[in-house]
Simulated assay, not measured.
Amino acid sequence: MPDEDRFQALFRAAYPDLVRFVERRLHPLAAEDVVAEVFVVAWRRLEEVPADHGRARAWLFGVAQRTMLNARRGDARRQALAVRVGSVLPADVVPDGSDQVVSQVDLARAWCLLSPADQEALTLTALDGLTTVEAAGVLGISRTALSLRLVRARRRLRVHLDHPATPKTAPADGGPR
Results as ranks from 00 to 15, higher is better:
Arg152Glu: 15
Phe7Leu: 09
Ala56Arg: 06
Ala126Met: 05
Gly174Thr: 05
Asp17Gln: 09
Ala51Leu: 08
Ala136Lys: 08
Val40Asp: 02
Asp92Pro: 13
Ala9Tyr: 02
Leu146Ile: 08
Asp17Phe: 04
Gly62Phe: 06
Arg84Glu: 15
Leu81Trp: 02
Val159Gly: 06
Ala145Gln: 06
Leu127Asp: 10
Leu107Ile: 02
Ser142Gly: 15
Gly74Val: 06
Asp96Ser: 06
Ala14Arg: 11
Ala9Ser: 02
Val138Pro: 13
Asp162Lys: 06
Phe61Ile: 00
Ala110Asp: 12
Val159Ser: 02
Arg66Gln: 03
Pro167Thr: 10
His53Gln: 14
Pro171Val: 06
Pro116Phe: 00
Pro116Cys: 01
Thr132Glu: 15
Pro167Gly: 10
Ala51Arg: 14
Gly86Glu: 10
Val101Lys: 04
Arg78Phe: 04
Val34Glu: 10
Val133Arg: 07
Tyr15Lys: 12
Arg154Met: 07
Ser98Thr: 11
Glu48Phe: 06
Leu139Lys: 15
Thr132Asp: 15
Arg55Ser: 13
Ala145Glu: 07
His27Phe: 08
Leu107Met: 15
Gln79Pro: 00
Gln104Met: 14
His163Lys: 09
Thr169Met: 02
Leu10Val: 06
Val85Arg: 12
Gly140Ala: 07
Pro116Thr: 08
Pro116Leu: 04
Pro176Ser: 09
Leu89Ser: 09
Gly86Arg: 07
Arg66Pro: 06
Ala76Arg: 11
Gly129Ser: 10
Arg72His: 14
Leu127Tyr: 00
Cys112Ser: 13
Pro116Ile: 00
Asp17Pro: 00
Thr144Pro: 00
Ser98Gln: 14
Gly175Val: 05
Ser147Gln: 14
Gly137Leu: 00
Leu26Gly: 07
Val35Gly: 09
Arg155Leu: 10
Gln65His: 10
Gln8Ser: 05
Val85Gly: 05
Ala56Val: 12
Val101Asn: 14
Arg66Val: 01
Leu150His: 04
Leu157Val: 10
Tyr15Pro: 00
Leu60Ser: 10
Ala36Asp: 09
Gly86Met: 03
Thr123Asn: 13
Leu69Met: 05
Ala82Leu: 11
Glu47Val: 09
Thr125His: 11
Leu146Ser: 12
Leu148Met: 12
Val34Gln: 10
Ala31Arg: 01
Leu113Ala: 04
Thr144Trp: 05
Gln104His: 10
Val63Asn: 13
Arg154Ser: 06
Leu18Lys: 10
Pro164Cys: 02
Ser103Tyr: 09
